[in-house]
Design a protein around this nucleic acid. Structure first.
Length: 574
DNA sequence: GAGTTTGAAACT
DNA sequence: CAGTTTCAAACTC
């Protein structure tokens, strides 16, 4: 029997923009992997449930190593913080509207929960067994019981960031590493049974936990379900694109199983084996990094060890995650990339706000931080690089390279420029080391980022400070140039729009040798036009207009002249 | 477009 | 940690 479950989800963190509405529907005996555009949901929950039980699981953190935090799911009822309503219906019934950005993870009792983050699977350390997790002392035996896992990521506070700020002349202190990592904050999920769902009682999914300061990894994490007894879940949302189909078993074998698969828009209804449902990832996805030697998972940009996810500051500090974005909104249309974040992607897949420059790497295979694409956690695409391995096809090498970078420098993928509201907060986290450029050329990372050098910098002959006359001169010139460019662009745009409105006349002469309007730009006409422009300039000058305004007036006059010429020519022709 | 300069990253 | 090499981008011609 088909079961359709709609999960309604509500945002809980204002730090993320309110996501557009999506609806997630789960049905049995289908299997698809979906990805969504611009998913920035705050919570996730579990939608497909066996009969008859209510399960509550929560998690506690255990510090294992300075740079790691392990979370174990334990039964623990929690105060309700966020509710995710679940609505059931028969096959074909329309799912109720919702605001869900649903990432779902479930597993049967016989299988560990499977989670996919950033397109790669994580085999979590065994979470609570369903039986142990049951609320109210219910047993959770049989095929119908599911353990649900929900993971949130909590950013460290500003004080912590300060604490880990790079020290001048020193490498990052490993003792402070935990502060540089994002803390996983698993939260409990109360699930209700399918029976209740199917009865139309619209049971509530209760998500409890320290949500007030929690940012979610959940919507940025692909959590997959391995449903018991051949059940599978299909997730579809209006704004989601159905992508890969990956079985739970396959995915559990390793990240390579997540290589791009042909997009399937509709799952086969006859699928009987458990399937993985991989909802979409947003464009702002957490950077997943890791150094664990026992890592059993490799993310596009990191390694996951035993269900422990390493998240660098950059991910949350920036509010977006330029690193390790395997399935991103802008890549949804880039099937060849398997939904990975790509640099210089095709026009239809490129977000309008991030047209990165293509790299030109020749020797690094784009697997070292020399490569801007790699350093920014992006795949190369439409670049000019040679022997590029920064792509899905070389995911293994890429993961190794990521790991190597992180071993050299755990903050390797952190943003170099601190992000803050004020200019004071925007500073190079390591400082530059320029010697010859005076920190007034783009060689200098500070100057390139349009920020002043700070005491973190070890540059010599620095001229990139507030009172520097050289810098002021440069800034003044740059401002003037920018104004001019803007004016020129505006004038050009206007002129182009006017020209576009004109009838196309490709040739000057007809077959009979008749003169066409475009040939009416004679010397006399040019002279008259110039006189008009000069007159306009003179007027502007007499009126005391600024240079910018004068230029604008002249350009407008030129436009009028052109229109008149064309109009006259057309009239003559006609 | 080729060659040079530059400084970060990588290496020793 | 300092010095050196490698690398790719910025820059110059």
């Amino acid at each position: 029997m088909e079961k359709i479950i709609t999960v309604k989800q509500e945002p809980i963190d204002d730090a993320y923009p309110t996501p557009p509405s999506t609806t997630t529907t789960a049905t049995s005996a289908t299997s698809t992997t979906t990805t969504a555009q611009n998913v920035t949901a705050k919570t996730s929950t579990v939608a497909t449930l066996p009969s008859g039980t209510t399960t509550t699981v929560t998690a506690t953190a255990v510090t294992r190593a300075p740079e790691t935090q392990i979370f174990f799911i334990q039964p623990k009822p929690e105060v309700q913080k966020t509710q995710c309503s679940v609505v059931s219906g028969a096959q074909g019934s329309s799912a109720s509207t919702s605001t869900a950005r649903t990432i779902i993870t479930t597993s049967s009792q016989s299988k560990p929960p499977l989670v996919v983050i950033s397109g790669s699977p994580i085999k979590l350390t065994p979470l609570s067994r369903a039986g142990a997790a049951l609320a109210g002392g219910q047993t959770n035996s049989g095929t119908g019981n599911i353990t649900c896992t929900l993971v949130h990521v909590q950013p460290f506070n500003a004080a912590a960031k300060q604490h880990i700020a790079p020290k001048a002349g020193g490498s990052p202190n490993k003792q402070s590493l935990p502060l540089q990592l994002q803390k996983l904050v698993p939260i409990s999920v109360v699930t209700t049974s399918l029976a209740k769902i199917q009865s139309g009682t619209a049971p509530q999914f209760t998500i409890a936990g320290p949500l007030s300061n929690v940012r979610h990894i959940a919507p940025k994490v692909n959590i997959v379900s391995a449903l018991p007894s051949g059940q599978a879940v299909q997730l579809t949302t209006p704004s989601l694109q159905v992508r890969n189909i990956v079985s739970a078993e396959k995915t559990a074998q390793g990240p390579q199983q997540l290589a791009p698969k042909p997009i399937q828009t509709q799952a086969s209804s006859g699928a009987q084996q458990p399937r993985l449902i991989v909802p979409a990832l947003p464009s702002s996805i957490p950077q997943i990094t890791g150094t664990g030697a026992t890592a059993n998972l490799q993310f596009p940009h990191g390694v996951i060890s035993g269900g422990v996810v390493y998240l660098p500051q950059q991910a949350l500090a920036s509010g977006g995650f330029p690193i390790a974005v395997p399935i991103q909104a802008n890549a949804l249309n880039a099937g060849a990339q398997g939904g990975m974040t790509v640099n210089g992607s095709s026009p239809e897949s490129s977000p309008p706000n991030r047209p990165r420059k293509p790299c030109n790497c020749t020797k690094s295979q784009c697997l070292k931080l020399y490569c801007d694409c790699f350093a920014n956690g992006e795949f190369c695409s439409n670049c000019n690089c040679v022997n590029c391995s920064n792509n899905m096809e070389h995911e293994k090498e890429r993961s190794k390279a990521i790991k190597a970078c992180l071993e050299r420098n755990p903050q390797a993928f952190h943003p170099k420029i601190g992000k803050g509201r004020g200019d004071a907060d925007r500073r190079h986290n390591k400082g530059c080391h320029c010697k010859r450029s005076g920190c007034l050329k783009n060689y200098c990372e500070c100057y390139e980022a349009k920020i002043l050098c700070t005491n973190l910098c070890k540059c010599t002959g620095c001229k990139n400070f507030e009172e520097s006359p050289e810098r002021k001169t440069l800034m003044h010139l740059a401002d003037a140039a920018e104004v001019r460019v803007n004016q020129q662009n505006a004038a050009r745009t206007k002129l182009e729009s006017q020209i576009e409105d004109l009838p196309s006349r490709p040739t000057f002469l007809t077959n009979s040798g008749e003169r066409l309007p475009f040939s009416f730009v004679t010397d006399e006409v040019v002279q008259a036009t110039c006189q008009c422009l000069l007159a306009q300039a003179s007027d502007a000058e007499n009126e005391g207009k600024s240079q910018a305004m004068t230029e604008k007036m002249i350009l407008e006059e030129f436009g009028r002249c052109l229109l008149q010429i064309i109009h006259t020519a057309n009239g003559t022709k006609e």
